[in-house]
Design a protein around this nucleic acid. Sequence first.
DNA 1: GTTGATTTGTGTTGTTTAGCACAAGAAGCT
DNA 2: AGCTTCTTGTGCTAAACAACACAAATCAAC
Lengths: 230, 230
Amino acid sequence: MNEKSGAKPCLYCGAKATCFTKLTDEELIVTGESRVEIKYKKGEIITKQGSFASNILFLKEGLVKLYLETEGDHDFILNFYNAGKLIGLPSLYDTIVSYSVAAVEDCVVCSIDIGTFRNLVMENGKFAAEIINTINHCTQFSFDKMVSLTQKQLNGRLADAFIYFSKYVFDSQKFKLNISRKEMADFTGMSTISVIRILKDFNKDGLVVYNNGYYEIPDMKRLEQISAVG
Amino acid sequence: MNEKSGAKPCLYCGAKATCFTKLTDEELIVTGESRVEIKYKKGEIITKQGSFASNILFLKEGLVKLYLETEGDHDFILNFYNAGKLIGLPSLYDTIVSYSVAAVEDCVVCSIDIGTFRNLVMENGKFAAEIINTINHCTQFSFDKMVSLTQKQLNGRLADAFIYFSKYVFDSQKFKLNISRKEMADFTGMSTISVIRILKDFNKDGLVVYNNGYYEIPDMKRLEQISAVG
DNA sequence: GTTGATTTGTGTTGTTTAGCACAAGAAGCT
DNA sequence: AGCTTCTTGTGCTAAACAACACAAATCAAC
């Protein structure tokens, strides 16, 4: 029990990822003994590309981005994760992490020892199946994203990004998102200036409405139409 | 034992993917009883996007492409797999397959019942770990590919493609590859005409040499330089 | 062997997107 | 509170790439 961080034990945590529901009480207790709960401020790096893979993260609160640091002056953001998600599964059996994770807003993260996690996979088949399922959802999003990047023009790609946030990250037509145009550009493979122009048009045309840190999509069908046309 | 196809039982097969080495003899026998071995000719579709997910494929001989069928007149090729690889892991827990698989040259495929495969994951932790590891390698290739697609110009992307074939598919500086310029375009997110022009330049500059169905890369460092510059 | 379809290749033009320069407003730091 | 840096936004230009038209070569089908 990590009393020092004042966190509830895993057994009693209400913020579980689906895979944790496959664990026995005993496995949850063991997990609780090899994790720490840490708070990160907006902008702080949680996992650094090139560092040793030593833990798997569970996001209790907040929003993070998973990105590749590149030689150029543009990172490439692969995904965003909100509360209740596991982060770091693509490097579960690696020695070195090949991507970075950073807080997009203030976050609370459970950091679980990677050895403990690997043992859970070995010992609990249902848990392993759920982990594979989670990784595969991410993989299939990557597949769709590659089609977006290569076969759609910039309007379609920015539409895809907002559909992603609404349907897959926040599961809501209205959501709190406080990222810069540069971060949106890094996520969609566009230049910052292109995001600025097209987002201004989306606002003007009422496709996307921004208010006090919240985005809203009044008519998802119109946005999907733009996504479909490319 | 699938005597009808004349195939060796899995227990005695010399063409195993690494994960199969984690199975017990008993598990190999069970696997052998729920698989069929099928021959495909170049161009034939092995798995069709939108069909039910019913089996996991193991490629004994040949080369296949895994691709997304899109609304436009360009598919998007995600990966190529050669002999000894498992195909279909991204849809292991799906009902419907979200991509297609086709033979790039004549192939021999072992088709394993997906239920049997799921049971192996549930019962054998080492097998499950190896499956996760395999999926993650594919995921990380997708990550690198997205950087290539968004941050490099066409020369760098075509260089990336040849590096991929040499280092990751064939593990050799010289390899047999018989794909059209259109297939290379579908793999790199370029137009066919652009692949034709740039490949002609690569041939002229001696970066890539083509002879009787074989490609050779005389100087990998020069190609990596082109990849790095983008 | 012939015919039709497809692929490869060249030249030119049009479209899409990024980059540059500049200005105004907002945010962060001291 | 003031200064510096960053973000957002506009106008214009250049670069990268796709598209179109056409021809020659190769492949597949009959």
